[in-house]
Design a protein around this nucleic acid. Structure first.
Length: 553
RNA sequence: UGCCCGAUAGUAUAAAGGUAGUACAACGGUUUUUGGUACCGUUUGUCUAGGUUCGAAUCCUGGUCGGGCAACCA
């Protein structure tokens, strides 16, 4: 824990603020809008804001930024809470921007009284037209100089529902010529006769993001308000409202959002994939959502480790998926029990092992765990399933596995020698015949034989069947966002492969949704939610590194 | 064309004017009853041109490139 690690720029700011006595207690917040499921990009923000108060003391609030009733749903509130908890973080207070609607309304009245806010009857198009462009100043609205009294009255009537949607807005009176477009008399309240997921029909006017976020931070006395780079230009407004209102000076700091290769991260695009049934919902194991990663078999530890390793900076980035995969392999390698499963079976018959006989072998569950993960019983007999790819009629160079005349170790069992094999009319190998060496039993081997290859197997008489789903990257290009045309054109058609009937060792019958396994020589797997007692379904979280497959190329 | 960010190996991220380091990736090797893991090693980098300085990735100036900003979204 105490290893020397350099601080990121936000930690530097915080240490300075804490050391200088500017703040005694660090307070951060995570402020999602409940309009979708959380994804790995949110995980970065969560790990940052919650991680900081874990490191420096203080606390983090969870605040649902629910100022737009037409996009927000309780379903999303629930899923977002579940995902944050699953990631391993606890918030101090569960809050909603909608909790502050009364206060925010009073803030707006205060600005009107100060003469720095006015009701504008212009249409959306008119407001846009008068906004100017980045290179040309905007023009003042004809309603900009209404009296305080008139504004007060109009704003009150907006609140009481006298006007239909879109007829007028409340705007801050700042500077229509500001080089920062955000400062050109931003709209701070709009009329929306819509039911809110929490306040119901109490309100028909709702504050805009800019008029809600900073003030909410201030109300909660958030010391360091962290958000992504696209809000940089909003900071000037954030500070302006706090100054005009004379409220607690929260400060906003921006960092670069996470981009990951071979996927998309925007909620809008993820929603499209869901709505167009291009994936199996928000928690499809190929989705970069927290719930998707969870279903895929990722662990909270591995995601936190990933967020730790990618760092925090202000530079745009595109992180390689291989780092995420490394993190989950690293964690699962230490924690997942090893088991045997044959995904593409071919029969192996041991001709000198008595037919009908079976014995129970003892297998170590995890050589990487401190206690070796305990042991389990594995039934063995004269007929086994092995992986089709573990036999080659004409062996390649440096082939360690089965071929006519070669010997391999059956994991946890005996050394066998390939004596013969059978083919069908099409020339496909259908059966492999071996003899075993009785004195080579795992753990009590006195044969003196050393073999290079060890393969996994399952006894045909004892095997259970399972469906296995193997996933690959969702998109076939590194950055679907920056390709020409529609991002959906770049979906990887082979992102999911289903093996209807694989053979697994009987031990796996006790798998539950929380267990993670390493299928020896294959990868890491977990039970899918679609699984039933009669029909087991496993998801591949990530494959093992495969130096042999690489060497073949 | 305005304003605001940013630029360090393939990808990220450090070095607070003083040895350009770490991780992932790639490549090679050792160990191995997983062609896994572990361990060892190799390749590859300061956008550019000036300036300040004994000394610049770092400070200054110009340029180049990338990103953001003109929703009654957040």
């Amino acid at each position: 824990m105490s290893e020397e690690r350099s601080l990121n720029f936000i930690e530097e700011i915080i240490e300075n603020d804490l050391n200088s006595g500017k703040y005694e207690t660090l307070v951060t917040r995570f402020p999602p809008e409940p309009n979708g499921y959380l994804h790995i990009g949110h995980a970065k923000a969560i790990c940052l804001s919650f991680g900081l108060t874990k490191k420096y003391g203080g606390y983090t609030n969870l605040r649902f930024d629910d100022t737009n009733p037409v996009t927000e749903k309780t379903e999303y509130v629930d899923s977002q809470q579940e995902d944050i908890k699953w990631l391993g973080f606890e918030w101090k207070n569960e809050l909603y921007t909608s909790d502050y609607f009364d206060t925010l309304y009073d803030f707006a009245v205060k600005l009107i009284e100060k003469g720095v806010a006015y009701v504008d009857d212009s249409t959306a198009d008119e407001i846009a037209a008068l906004k100017g462009t980045p290179t040309e100043a905007g023009t003042n609205s004809p309603f900009r100089n209404r009296s305080v009294q008139e504004n007060l009255e109009l704003f009150s009537r907006m609140k009481s529902g006298e006007f239909p949607d879109g007829t007028c807005t409340l705007r801050a009176k700042i500077d229509m010529a500001s080089p920062n477009m955000i400062m050109r008399d931003p709209i701070i309240y709009r009329i929306k006769h819509a039911e809110h997921h929490r306040t119901g029909n109490k309100w028909c006017i709702y504050p805009m993001y800019d008029f809600a976020h900073g003030q909410s931070d201030s109300i909660e006395e958030i010391t360091h308000s962290l958000c992504t780079l696209e809000y940089v230009s909003h900071r000037e407004l954030y500070d302006w409202f706090i100054a005009e209102l004379g409220i607690f000076p929260s400060h906003q700091y921006e960092f670069a959002r996470l981009n990951l290769t071979y996927t998309v991260m925007s909620k809008r695009k993820l929603l499209q994939l869901v709505n167009e049934n291009l994936v199996d919902g928000w928690n499809d194991p190929r989705m970069p959502t927290i719930s998707g990663l969870r279903r895929r078999g990722y662990t909270p530890e591995s995601i936190r480790e990933f967020c730790d390793r990618i760092g925090v900076a202000k530079r745009e980035n595109l992180i390689e998926l291989s780092l995420l995969e490394f993190c989950v392999r690293e964690h699962l390698n230490k924690t997942a029990n090893r088991v045997m499963a044959v995904l593409d079976p071919i029969k192996l018959v041991i001709t000198n092992y008595p037919e009908g006989k079976s014995e129970i072998l003892i297998g170590e569950n995890n050589p990487e765990a401190e206690d070796k993960g305990g042991t389990r019983e594995i039934p063995f007999s004269n007929e086994l399933w092995i992986e089709r790819e573990d036999f080659m009629e004409e062996p390649a160079k440096k082939w360690f596995r089965l071929a006519p005349g070669t010997m391999v170790r059956l994991k946890h069992a005996y050394i066998v020698k390939c004596e013969d094999f059978k083919k069908d009319a099409e020339g496909n190998v259908t059966e492999i015949h071996c003899t075993y060496i009785p004195e080579s039993k795992s753990g009590e081997d006195t044969s003196g034989i050393n073999v290079k290859g060890t393969i996994h197997w399952v006894s045909t008489a004892h095997a259970k069947t399972a469906e296995i789903r193997i996933y690959d990257r969702l998109f076939s290009v590194e950055s679907p966002d920056s390709e020409e045309g529609d991002f959906k054109d770049y979906l990887n058609p082979e992102s999911m492969k289903v093996i209807k009937e694989a053979y697994i060792e009987p031990y796996l019958a006790e798998a539950n949704l929380d267990s993670r396994y390493q299928f020896i020589r294959k990868g890491y797997y977990c039970l899918d939610q679609d699984s039933t007692a009669e029909h087991l379904v496993f998801n591949q979280t990530v494959g093992l590194k495969d130096a042999w497959a690489k060497a073949k190329k």
